[in-house]
Computed example of a mutant assay.
Amino acid sequence: MLFGRQEEAARRGLFPEKREATMRAISNIVNATIGADEPLQTVTVGRVAAASYRDLLSIVDGSATDEAVLAHAESIAETFDAHIEVMLANEVPSPAVYAAEGLGPTYALIEAERETRDAKADALRQRLEGIDRRHDVRRCDAYPGELQRLAASLSRCADLTIVSRPYGRQHHDATTLEAVLFEGGRAAYVVPHEPCKPVLPEVVVVGWRDTPECAQAIGAAMPFLQRARQVYLVSVTEGEPAEARRQEPMADMVRHLARHDVKLEVRHLPEWSHPADALLNEGRMTGAGLIVAGAYGRSRLREWILGGVTRELLKRSELPLLLAR
């Protein structure tokens, strides 16, 4: 082990005998691995390795919004050569539901529910026959609370979880999304309901705040950010900006993204009273294909009672969202 000046000298190559011995050892290992008669491939050092998604989780429930989720999953999987794990979340009615309606969980009712779940599974298998990507189906028949626990558990073993946007049509709450973000501790890619032909986003808007949630979202979005033609790092000023206090968290993030070869432009938006309005407007004005943001910077209860950026984005965004916390 080298210390002090010796370490610096070794780094600068002032110990040629040790340097040559190290290079010989590396050469011997490579030759033993690929064969001495095979040509040694040149490896370029110093270029940033592109981040990627290799394992995707798509959560569907047999509703009309499944098509959008699967279409986005297929597009992302094709771009990154990823595997798709599809979770079919079949909600089993609790006995309390029958009791509230004055019914008993008779055999006929239970059998009808089972047939409905079987039909959803058959329809999903037929839909997936047209996907030319590696995929598996995980059918989960469970009570609502158990479904959220399973979604969180599966999301921990995926690079990105793809879900439908809540607060619209057949989706009235965000329990599955929140399970992925809070219990799973993973990022979620939230797709709008409208079926479309998804493409890799060429323009991405990143909502910046100096918070752990935002940093997690940027890290999770790195494969998209590196491949985008343009990324806008957008700061919506709420009160005195950090730069006015001689702090530079945004400048630090700019340097961090530049080191990852992200093509970046910084925008400060001081005239907006609500950050969600600013981000949605910026997405429309720039022609963005994706909005990246930290989720639930304050408690879910306060978001529900007082409103918040996450809830407003989920209710109103027509663009895919990548959220993390």
Rank of each mutant, 00 (worst) to 15 (best):
F3E: 11
G4N: 10
G4L: 05
A9I: 01
G13A: 06
G13C: 08
P16H: 08
E17H: 08
A21P: 11
T22N: 14
I26R: 15
T33H: 15
I34H: 10
A36Y: 09
Q41C: 06
T42F: 11
V43S: 02
T44W: 08
V45T: 10
R47F: 14
V48H: 14
S52T: 14
S52N: 08
L56Q: 00
D61M: 05
D61F: 00
S63T: 06
S63D: 08
L70M: 08
H72V: 01
I76R: 06
A82N: 02
E85H: 06
E85A: 13
E91R: 06
A100S: 14
E101N: 14
L103Q: 13
P105H: 04
A108V: 09
L109G: 03
I110C: 01
E113C: 06
E115Y: 10
A119W: 05
A123V: 02
L124G: 03
Q126D: 09
R127S: 15
R133F: 04
H135S: 12
R139V: 15
G145S: 11
L147Q: 06
L150I: 07
A152G: 15
A152C: 14
L154A: 08
S155M: 09
A158G: 07
A158W: 04
L160P: 07
L160H: 07
I162W: 00
R165Q: 10
Y167I: 12
Q170P: 11
A174C: 13
T176N: 05
A179H: 04
L181V: 05
L181A: 11
L181Y: 02
F182P: 11
A187D: 06
A188W: 02
V190W: 00
P192H: 00
K197W: 04
P201H: 05
V203E: 01
V204Q: 04
V205R: 01
R209K: 13
T211Y: 08
C214I: 09
Q216G: 04
A217M: 09
Q230R: 12
L233P: 11
E238S: 15
G239S: 05
R246W: 07
P249T: 01
M250I: 05
D252W: 05
R255T: 05
H256I: 01
H260D: 12
V262M: 04
V266G: 07
W272Y: 11
H274M: 11
M285W: 03
M285A: 15
V292W: 08
A295G: 07
G297A: 10
G307H: 08
T310H: 09
R311Q: 13
L313R: 04
L319P: 03
